[in-house]
Design a protein around this nucleic acid. Structure first.
Length: 405
DNA sequence: AGATTGAGTGTAGCTTCATA
DNA sequence: TATGAAGCTACACTCAATCT
């Protein structure tokens, strides 16, 4: 059974935290406190797990008040001339570490600056790494927060690491793994989250879970292909030129693996092209009935495309994993992951920034982006807009003439 | 000592949305 | 459908601690 003990100085946030616990059916005690100076739950060496998202780069912690706090086992990170701790990040980090029991684990969000900061902060970091309990570091790109655009890093401590992983840190850089929710907000899709997690399974030797995930994606690809049948057939029924579409569909329904995904993409292209022909034909003769038929066609097209995309999507997920870890074992992957040991950290000023170790990823090609196709669409849109533009210019000019001033 | 940086700030001007 | 308030975005600019 888990008991939650929370600390927060903001009243509204306390209410939110309590609601969050209640909604998830959890029991917890959230106390109003300023964590820098107080430990009302007396958590020192008591927590099996620590989870936190502390404020970043705070510069108002009174150094005198915290300098003898037992929760700073690695010392003060540095004091500015105003008598404040120059940056609060390592106060938070030290506190989280000190709350852990002998087997405890911690995971928290942290400002990207902290993992490579110099001076006093580097000293604290060195001592922290020397414990051998820094487990995993993950870089997250900007726009994952709803209200701020800052990038961040996830830090994980583990005091019960197996002996062979002691003094090793798994560096993961997923700054180019994301899904766009809106123009300003990004997140991970459930599959992206699983894929990141599966790297950690390999690190922990839970290779079967990795294998099962790949197998799941493969089954799902076939399942989604099956689901595609009725929607694709519905479109073919109404389409303008059935020839090539029908032939490709015949191949599609009997194919497997890579070919299944390729044919799903080919079908998508053919359907898009056919729909464009359909739309062009209606423009010229826009009777109400034909307009209506076009709208039906558009709905059918969208349904078919959406479903076909799922086929290539799940196939792509399986491929993403097997390309990077072909033997279903952890290995260093350029730009994504590297298992680093203490000596390498030392050579790099004890930096814990994943990007520094994993290198730069080879540019990934968006599987859904087709340059020729996109160029064609943009070109035809431009032509329409140009036509409209010259039509409007002519009307404006005519209107001026009519004013006869 | 100078350059860089930032869970910075403020505001004009545009878009969106509810209302009459 | 016209109107105005609120919301949002892009831009210009701050300033001092930290970095080199």
């Amino acid at each position: 059974k888990l008991n939650f003990y929370g600390l927060e100085k903001n009243g509204t946030t306390i209410d939110l935290a309590k609601m969050n616990l209640a909604v998830h059916g959890l029991v917890g005690d959230i106390k109003k406190a300023i964590t820098y100076y107080e430990d009302p739950h007396n958590l020192f060496n008591k927590a099996d797990f620590v989870m936190a998202n502390p404020p970043f780069n705070v510069d108002e912690i009174d150094a005198d008040k915290v300098k003898n706090d037992p929760r700073l086992p690695f010392g003060l990170p540095g004091v500015n001339k105003k008598g404040k701790v120059s940056n609060g990040n390592y106060v938070w980090i030290s506190y989280f570490y000190s709350y852990l029991t002998e087997q405890g684990k911690a995971g928290f969000v942290m400002s990207s600056q902290a993992s490579s900061a110099g001076k006093g902060e580097a000293k604290v970091r060195e001592k922290l790494i020397e414990t051998g309990n820094v487990d995993i570091m993950i870089s997250i790109r900007s726009n994952f927060f709803y209200t701020r655009t800052v990038p961040c890093e996830l830090w994980f401590f583990n005091k019960s690491k197996p002996a062979e992983l002691k003094d090793k840190v798994l560096m993961i850089d997923v700054r180019n793994v994301f899904r766009k929710v809106t123009r300003k907000i990004y997140d991970f899709s459930p599959e992206q989250l699983q894929n990141i997690l599966s790297i950690i399974w390999l690190y922990r030797g839970e290779n079967k879970r990795f294998h099962d995930l790949v197998a799941y994606y493969q089954t799902q690809t076939i399942h989604e292909a099956g689901e595609s049948k009725p929607v694709v057939e519905a479109y073919i029924e109404k389409c303008l030129k059935a020839g090539e579409l029908r032939a490709t569909y015949k191949e599609f329904i009997v194919s497997v693996g890579d070919e299944l995904s390729l044919l799903s993409k080919k079908l998508q292209k053919l359907i898009e092209a056919d729909y464009r022909l359909m739309a062009k034909a209606v423009e010229k003769d826009s009777s109400r009935e034909k307009q209506k038929a076009l709208r039906v066609g558009e709905i059918l097209k969208n349904k078919a495309i959406e479903q076909l995309k799922l086929v290539s999507y799940f196939h792509h997920q399986a491929q993403w994993l097997t390309e990077r870890f072909p033997e279903e074992k952890l290995r260093d992957v350029e730009g994504l992951v590297k298992l680093v040991d203490k000596s390498e950290l030392k050579e790099n000023d004890w930096s814990l920034t994943p990007g520094r170790y994993v290198g730069v990823a080879p540019e990934e090609i968006d599987p859904d982006f087709d340059f020729d196709e996109t160029m064609k669409i943009i070109h035809s849109e431009l032509e329409d807009l140009n036509a409209q533009s010259s039509e409007l210019a002519k009307r404006i000019s005519d209107n001026f003439k009519k004013l006869e001033i």
